[in-house]
Structures are given as C-alpha cells and as structure tokens.
Amino acid sequence: MIKRSVLPILTVLGIILTVWYAGTVGMNWRVESERLERMGLERTTMEMVELTMSMERPILPAPHQVWAEIQSSVFERSPTSRRSLVYHAWITLSSTLVGFAMGTLLGVLLAVGIVHSRVLDKSLLPWIIASQTIPILAIAPMIIIVFNTVGVTGLLPKAFISTYLAFFPVAIGMTKGLRSPEAMHLDLMHTYNASRSEIFWKLRLPSSLPYLLASMKIAVAIALVGAIVGELPTGAVAGLGARLLSGSYYGQTIQIWSALFMAAFMSALLVYSIGWIGAWVNKRMGARDVHV
C-alpha cells in the first residue's frame, strides 16, 4: 500500500525538481551574466550554472536555497522570534482555524435554515452565491479597515475574511447533505409521526455528515487563503501574508518561496486532518470503505 503510493509521489517530485532547477538556471542566467559583465568577470558555463543557483536575490531561487531558508527559519530560530517561520505560520494558522470554525458554523446554520424554511431557501441562496462573486482581494482591505476603525484589530478581522470564504462550500455542501435522505427514509419517519427536530437529528444530520466533511476540506483550504489575504493590507506585521509582502518589498524571493511552501504544507496538513477526522467519523458510522 505504502510502496504503491511512494513511487508515483517520488516520480512527480523528481519531475518538479528537474523542471524547477532548469527554470532557475534559465531565469536567473541573464541577470547573473549582466552582473558579471558589469564587473568585467568571465565564467565558464558550469560556473555560471552554479552561480545562478546561489544568488542572494534570484528571480527564481533554487529548491535547495528555499529548503535551506525553511530549515534555518524553522529549526534554527526560537518559535517566538519574529524571524522564525513557525511564529508567522502560527499567526496565520490561528486566524485560519478561528475563521474556519466560524465559517463552518455559519455554513451549517445557513444550510439548516435553508432546508427548513422555504422563505430562506428562496431568499438566501442567491445572496450566498452572489457573495462569492466579489473578489476577496477587493473586499479584504475594506473588512480590515472597517473593523480597525471600530477598534477590532489583530486576529478577528483576518478570521472574518476566512469565514467569508469558508462558509460558502459548507453552506452549499451541507444543504445538499441535509436534503440527501431518500424519500423512503423520510416516509419511514412520517409513519412514526416524527417531529421535524427528530427527523433532523436522527436522519438529516447523520445523512449530511459525509457532505459536510467533504465541504469542510475545501473550506479549511480557502480559510487559509483568506487569512493570508487578510494579512496583506494591514502593512504586514506578522503572519505568512506578511512574509510574502515584505519579501516582495525587498526582493527577497527566497523568503517568499519559503513562506509559500509553509502555506502549502499547512494547507495540506489541514485538509488531511479533516480527512482523518472524516475517516474516523465514517468508521464510527459503519461505513464499508473508509477513505481519507
């Protein structure tokens, strides 16, 4: 099982690294050779290749440069230091989790309302869909500024942006899930003269869990994106978004890429965590095949 999945992953990784290294040499070549020209220096091709991979501010840093930066900023610095990537990752992660939790709650509540009320069904859904057509990059600064002026700063405004993105897939998925019981399963409840709340707790909710968990996977990933976007407009004090922004101010491409990889790693970890929770829930619910 593990053997079967390791080989494809390594193959893909190998291809990515090869393309990346080729890109590093290709994209940094001109800048590096111009620099050498200005200094009147001559280098062989092999030396040039080496130099393109060890520039301080490359257009595209080499994988090993990014890895070295991640290593030093993760393992060699105290996690409470402002220069530690763990510190910034935690700032982003905490507002991601808060925003994700609020978004999931909001999405579930909306779905429950939509499924149980014809009025909400007709009135809310178009607005929910419309809310997601607004580019988050445009609305994020306004949310941050509005909250700052009323004195709410720090984690919460960023978390609200995560919430804004995360509630959507949950609302849609949960609505579908709550409506997923078969007619026969519902008829059965009617023959028992079950109340709406009994139908909800004993039938609709359990039926909806697979849908909820699938939509939570999407929600947690975009909650992270929301948190990073939320860190950009505040002048980037802390968080992975801040690392991205300050990296681009000062041309620190290596810093940008290591922050990006940290974000990707965190995102994968979050999505898999939801997957593991889902597998556990499915197993508890007697599912035949359990997939993460």
Binding site: E182, M184, D187, L188, M285, G286
Partner: peptide
C-alpha cells in the same frame, strides 16, 4: 401501523 417498504430502508449508520 408498522410500514415495511419495498427496500429495507435501514439507516446505514445505525
């Protein structure tokens, strides 16, 4: 009355 449907209609998570 008790009603028995064409399919067992058992709740799979129970």
């Amino acid at each position: 009355y008790g009603y028995v449907f064409q399919q067992p209609a058992l709740y799979p998570w129970r």
